[in-house]
Design a protein around this nucleic acid. Structure first.
Length: 289
DNA sequence: AGTTGGACCTGACTGC
DNA sequence: TGCAGTCAGGTCCAAC
């Protein structure tokens, strides 16, 4: 599941690989991969032919001038100051492959870069690509509404305290709220709660100052460590980086998808609880209070 | 307004 | 072996 560390890994790899490359070919093979906002659940997605043509026109001939990231999204800036936004969704990968090598079954969008090509591979089609005009906040009204980057100076214990004040939701859910803080999903929400020693079922608005401090520190530690490990590749191998390599954070997971297995700290079997949204949170009943 | 639950999707897994 | 059913989760949206 690509979250911040996975998107950051891909962005760093692309930065060293494709800056300066020119897009000479655009192929869109699935309508959902360029669906527009507000049409998420419409299938068949309306106006595919014209949107595909517009998408290709916006990209063909452009040079890639930079690679960035916001939350879980990878941002490719283009020489005309437009930005290609890539949301990886559940199963999205961005692969750099030599042109002509066998195409992945779930390759949804292919951008030709001369001898190589950038492939957006996404079996579940939860991901999407979009070209936005410009590079500033005006180009990203949705990102503008996002909370701060958790590894930026804007994300402080004071910010976290203010953002959670009065919230009736649980911390496991709040951490995944992109408007509160950007880039955290299931894997890292579970791991952050564990390292903070807090049950994910705790009410977000009722944390003491020391708890908030622990949660803040755990978030930064976990995400930094996961970036160093190039992200998490689960047993199903869904996530791969831009070179097709697996992330190494899996061996460091303390709770995520370890239901029934002994806690790596105290040996107590890990529990799983369904929170609102239907997502199962994993936690240790002894280490987390 | 904040919060919740359903829908979208398909590969992997389970059970008969 | 095969087929139906279940699960997984990022994000949007409708409904409390």
């Amino acid at each position: 599941m690509p979250e911040l560390p996975e998107a950051e890994t891909i962005a760093r790899q692309l930065r060293s690989e494709i800056i300066g490359a020119q897009i000479d070919r655009v192929q869109v093979r699935h309508p959902r991969s360029i669906r527009r906002r507000g049409a998420e659940n419409e299938n068949p997605n309306p106006g595919f032919a014209s949107r595909r043509a517009r998408f290709a026109r916006a990209l063909r001939g452009r040079r890639i001038t930079g690679v960035g990231r916001r939350g879980k999204a990878v941002l490719l800036t283009l020489d005309d100051a437009d930005t290609l936004v890539v949301r990886l969704g559940m199963s999205g990968q961005i692969l750099v492959r030599p042109t002509g090598t066998p195409r992945e079954k779930a390759a949804r969008v292919i951008l030709g870069l001369g001898e190589r090509e950038l492939r957006f591979v996404d079996p579940r089609t939860f991901g999407q690509m979009a070209v936005r005009r410009g590079t500033g906040p005006d180009a990203f009204p949705d990102f503008w509404e996002y909370g701060p980057e958790p590894l930026s100076p804007k994300f402080t214990p004071a910010y976290l305290a203010a953002a959670l004040r009065g919230r009736r939701t649980r911390i496991g859910v709040a951490l995944m709220d992109q408007h509160l803080v950007a880039g955290i999903g299931k894997i890292y929400a579970d791991e952050i709660c564990f390292r903070a020693g807090l049950r994910p079922t705790r009410l977000a608005g009722r944390l003491t100052r020391p708890m908030l401090q622990r949660l803040w520190r755990a978030a930064r530690q976990v995400l930094r460590e996961a970036i160093r490990c190039c992200g998490t590749t689960d047993a199903d191998g869904a996530y791969l980086d831009a070179f097709g390599q697996a992330g190494r954070f899996r061996t460091r997971l303390r709770v995520y998808r370890r239901t029934g297995q002994p806690c790596r700290v105290c040996g107590t079997p890990i529990r799983r609880t369904r929170l609102s949204g239907g997502r199962g949170m994993h936690w240790c009943p002894v280490c987390q209070r």
